[in-house]
């Protein structure tokens, strides 16, 4: 577990290092969103680590659950914005926007309850985390659906966005049941099964690193000239 934790911390830094080294290649809005998300994740981890190890009576306070609840909301908005920016279909964008608003309202209500309760023994509140996971999985599927609809010359895996989406999907599908059943698990099980979260974080960070390695493709040049290719082919039969 300690090894996996260490590995998870290292892989959390890895995409950031690649981003900074290949800054010219990744100097675009979508990459910057993921970069800020990773920076925020590190800050969050440091805060949780600090509160867990260097604060007295932390188990009696609601600081860590509050941090996790805020993290869930901000993580959703970083990744949701990334997918929103990558989508082209206006209907899909509207669906994403609507779902995000509904999620924000429910997550804020949940946050209000955590703050007002004062003491919270539950580390992770399963409902907002699971809702966020389901929504992000659906958004990712929408993106992939849109990608296979558009005729392109370049392979999908040569697109950096694809690897970010794969990272998001693997992470949220892998941890979905864990976070959904988190409150039903005993303290020992929660600790034991935390390994799932760590493995998924490592995988997600590896995929994000791959994404930062790949140059952002020129979306105009890689599309087939279908006006000449297919339609024109049908002109004379």
């Amino acid at each position: 577990m300690v090894f996996l934790k260490t590995l998870a911390y290292i892989t959390l830094v890895l995409p950031l290092v690649v981003y900074l080294i290949l800054n010219k290649r990744n100097n675009n809005k979508p990459s910057r969103v993921i970069f800020y998300y990773l920076v925020y994740s590190i800050v969050h981890e440091i805060l949780v680590y600090y509160l867990t190890n260097f604060t007295d009576n932390i188990s009696d306070s609601n600081a860590i659950p509050l941090l996790y609840a805020i993290f869930t909301i901000i993580e959703f908005f970083f990744l949701g914005y990334y997918i929103y920016d990558s989508l082209k279909n206006k209907l899909f964008k509207k669906v994403l926007l609507l779902c995000s608003i509904i999620f924000l309202i429910t997550a804020l209500i949940n946050l209000f309850f955590i703050i007002s309760s004062g003491v919270n023994n539950q580390l992770i509140d399963t409902i907002p985390v699971s809702t966020s996971a389901i929504l992000l999985i659906i958004f990712s599927i929408l993106y992939l659906f849109e990608e296979i609809q558009a005729p392109k010359i370049g392979f999908i895996y040569s697109n950096p966005k694809f690897w970010i989406i794969v990272g998001i999907m693997i992470y949220f599908t892998g941890t979905f049941f864990f976070f959904l059943l988190f409150s039903d698990l005993s303290g020992k099980d929660q600790y034991n099964y935390w390994i799932i979260n760590l493995i998924c974080i490592i995988l997600k960070n590896i995929f994000f690193t791959i994404s930062f390695f790949l140059p952002l493709e020129n979306e105009n040049s890689n599309e087939f000239d279908s006006s000449f290719g297919i339609n024109h082919y049908n002109t004379i039969k």
Binding site: L144, I170, L181, L185
Partner: peptide, 20 residues
């Protein structure tokens, strides 16, 4: 709960990898 969690996670991951 552990069985649900274990098979649920494996199933979800298998579905995602299959889809990709």
């Amino acid at each position: 709960v552990s069985v649900v969690l274990f098979f649920g996670t494996i199933g979800m991951l298998a579905l995602t990898i299959g889809l990709i």
